[in-house]
C-alpha cells in the first residue's frame, strides 16, 4: 500500500502525465481492434497498471481472446498464449527440465508462462493441478519446477478467459484461486450497431494483424510505479473497509482483506487514468463492480454477487 506521507508531493506531474498517456494510448490502440467494450478495456488497463491479473468470463465467440491479444499486442513485451485443455500438464505451462546430452546436464526449458503478457485461454478446462501452476506464477511471480524456482519476467500480467457454456465439463476455479485475479470481466454480446460495425471490420483483413505496440515495457513499469504512488487517504481506506465489511455482513463469503487491497490498487490505477494523483470515492465505485463480485458468495440464489456489490455501493456511506 502506498505510504502517502512520504510520497505526497514527490510525484512529479510529468510522471503522472506519462502514466495517463500510456493508459490512454493503450486503450485507444485496443479500440482500433475491438468494437465497443470501452469500459472493459479500461478495466483491463487499470488492472494491468494496478499490477493485477484479469479474468474474462463469457460464452465463446464474443471476442475474449481477441481483446486479450489486442491488449498484449499494444505493448512491445513478450506475449505468450496457453490454450488450456483437459490434458494439459503443469509442465506444459511452466516449462520442464531437459537433459542436455552435450553438456550432460539438466537444463530448464521455459514454458509459455514466461512472458510479459500471458493469455490463458479457457483455463477452466484444465485440471486443478495445471491451473495452480498458473496461479502460483500469478501470485508469487515465480514458478517451481523440480524444486527449483524460476522468476517470471516483469512486468507480468495474466489475462485468462473462462467459458461459461460447458459448466459441467469444466474445472471451475475455486474461490480461493479466483481471488488471485484482480478483476473479473464479462464481455457480453455487442449491441446491434457495434456487431454490424465489427463484422464490417473483420471480414477480409483482420485489424489485429496490423496492430502495433504503442507502449514499451518500461513505459508500463513506470506507469505501474506512478500508480503505486497515488495517494489513498484515510477516508478512502475507511470507505473500502466499509464496503468489504458490508459484503461480509450480507453474504456467506464476503470480500477478504486481499480483495480490499485489490480494490484500492485498481482505484489507484483508475485515478491515474483520470489524471489524478489521489484516489477519490468515485474511483473506488467504478472499480468495485469488477474487483469485488468474484470474491463473494451470496447466501441466496436470487441475489447475485454483482447485485450485492451494487447494493453495497448504494447503501454504504461514502463518508
Amino acid at each position: 500500500m502506498t505510504d502517502t506521507d512520504t510520497t505526497r508531493g514527490q510525484q512529479s506531474d510529468s510522471a503522472l502525465r506519462d502514466a495517463t498517456g500510456v493508459a490512454t494510448q493503450v486503450i485507444e490502440n485496443v479500440e482500433e481492434v475491438i468494437v465497443g467494450h470501452h469500459d472493459e478495456i479500461e478495466h483491463i488497463v487499470t488492472a494491468m497498471l494496478g499490477r493485477g491479473h484479469i479474468l474474462l468470463e463469457d460464452v465463446p465467440g464474443v471476442g475474449k481472446t481477441m481483446l486479450a491479444r489486442s491488449v498484449a499486442a499494444s505493448f512491445d513485451g513478450e506475449f505468450k498464449r496457453v490454450q488450456f485443455t483437459p490434458d494439459l500438464l503443469p509442465t506444459d505451462v511452466t516449462g520442464v527440465n531437459v537433459f542436455n546430452q552435450k553438456t550432460q546436464e539438466f537444463e530448464f526449458r521455459r514454458g509459455p508462462i514466461f512472458g510479459n503478457v500471458v493469455l490463458g485461454d479457457e483455463i477452466n478446462r484444465a485440471p486443478p493441478k495445471t491451473q495452480s501452476a498458473l496461479l502460483e506464477a500469478m501470485e508469487e511471480g515465480q514458478v517451481s519446477v523440480d524444486g527449483t524456482t524460476h522468476s517470471v519476467p516483469q512486468p507480468f500480467t495474466v489475462i485468462a478467459t473462462q467459458n461459461t457454456v460447458e459448466q459441467n465439463k469444466a474445472y471451475d476455479l475455486p474461490m480461493a484461486e479466483l481471488d488471485r485475479f484482480m478483476t473479473k470481466l464479462h464481455l457480453g454480446y455487442p449491441d446491434e450497431g457495434e456487431e454490424t460495425a465489427m463484422l464490417g471490420e473483420v471480414v477480409g483483413h483482420h485489424p489485429i494483424e496490423e496492430l502495433k505496440p504503442v507502449a514499451t515495457l518500461s513505459d508500463l513499469q513506470a506507469a505501474r510505479d506512478t500508480v503505486a504512488d497515488v495517494s489513498v487517504e484515510e477516508p478512502i481506506r475507511a470507505y473500502a473497509t466499509r464496503l468489504a465489511r458490508y459484503t461480509r455482513e450480507h453474504a456467506e463469503l464476503g470480500v477478504s482483506p486481499r480483495g480490499s487491497i485489490s480494490l484500492l490498487r485498481a482505484a489507484q490505477a483508475r485515478a491515474v487514468l483520470n489524471n489524478r494523483e489521489y484516489v477519490v470515492p468515485d474511483d473506488v465505485q467504478q472499480e468495485a463492480p469488477v474487483v469485488l463480485p468474484h470474491r463473494i458468495r451470496t447466501d441466496s440464489s436470487e441475489q447475485t454477487a454483482a447485485d450485492l456489490v451494487t447494493a453495497a455501493l448504494n447503501t454504504v456511506d461514502v463518508e
Partner: peptide
C-alpha cells in the same frame, strides 16, 4: 440531500 453511497461528484 446526498444519498448514502452517492459520491460528491455523482
Amino acid at each position: 440531500p446526498r444519498e448514502a453511497g452517492e459520491t460528491v461528484r455523482t
